[in-house]
Simulated scan of single mutants.
Amino acid sequence: MTKELVFITIHGMGETEKEYYLGLKQALEKQLGEEIWSKVHFEPIYYQTALQHYQHSVWENMRHSTPLAWQDLRKFMLFGFSDVSTLEHRATDDGSVYKKIQKIIIYSLQVARKELETNNIPIVIVAHSLGCQVISNYLWDAQNNKGIWQTGSLDYPDFKSEQEDFLKLKSLKYLFTTGCNIPLFVAGFADIKAIPKPNADFKWLNYYDKDDVLGWPLKPLSPSYDLVVEQDIEIDSGNIWQSWNPQSHDGYWTDEEFINPLSQVIHSLIN
């Protein structure tokens, strides 16, 4: 069946299973029904392969060297905060982790493009936590010929010229961010700039929970964020064990307050 929409997910920080998206995917399939979902090309981006092997090695060395209390919390902090510190370390260097992650995004987009008949197909992206910063970086670099898009870079992607607009996400209609921690990356800058809109129809909807200490509103960041982000939407994320505390960070993608409007957007983009 001809696909009418590309739906992309990108995960957040910390130890992440390859099928991190299953709860969200199943909820959308149930909400939309088979007829609508069959017109969607679903493409999850999994960038932990650039990080997780090394993190596991460090964790095992630490864990076996001496008794450590609060191991679950320590592991979460080791994986999560090393993601953050490693992501943009020497980002402009050839072969950096930053560029490796961008190349993973490119590869996933190329996989999706093979299933489509045209470049000009609506794209919806759902990004969580650190993934919000990852996809924002990718969009910024694609728009400004930075990162892997810099001419002459050894990491410049290999692609068919007619695919460039798709790979640069020029038909991105909606960016949904959940538990977004972009403020942690930009708070120290005097001039905080958001990505320009990739097209006139683009909408950025940012979901946060007031109890999620890793998730923030974005419009107050700067005038450019206020202009580009359509709405900061506060929800009560997660189940009864999550919604009132920082564990709400992990509850967005199965919460009806998020699933319902996301489903409505997908439905509206399908003919």
Rank of each mutant, 00 (worst) to 15 (best):
N199D: 06
I192F: 08
N206C: 07
A200S: 14
P157M: 02
C180A: 11
N181K: 02
N181R: 08
P196H: 12
K173F: 05
A200D: 15
K203W: 01
F166C: 00
K193A: 07
Y174N: 07
L154H: 11
N181L: 09
K173D: 10
L172T: 08
K193C: 06
N206A: 10
W204G: 05
P198D: 04
E162H: 08
N199E: 06
P157L: 04
K170T: 11
N199T: 02
S171H: 14
K173L: 10
D155M: 12
A190R: 15
K173H: 11
T177R: 02
L154C: 09
K197N: 01
F159I: 04
G152M: 06
A190Q: 15
A187Y: 14
E162D: 12
I192D: 09
A200L: 13
P196G: 11
I195V: 13
N199G: 03
D191L: 11
W149H: 03
Y207W: 05
P183M: 01
S153I: 02
E162L: 05
F189G: 10
K193P: 04
I182G: 04
F159L: 07
F202I: 07
D155F: 09
D158Q: 13
G188D: 09
T151K: 15
F176P: 02
L172M: 10
S153A: 11
D191K: 15
K193T: 12
D201H: 15
Q163D: 15
F189Y: 14
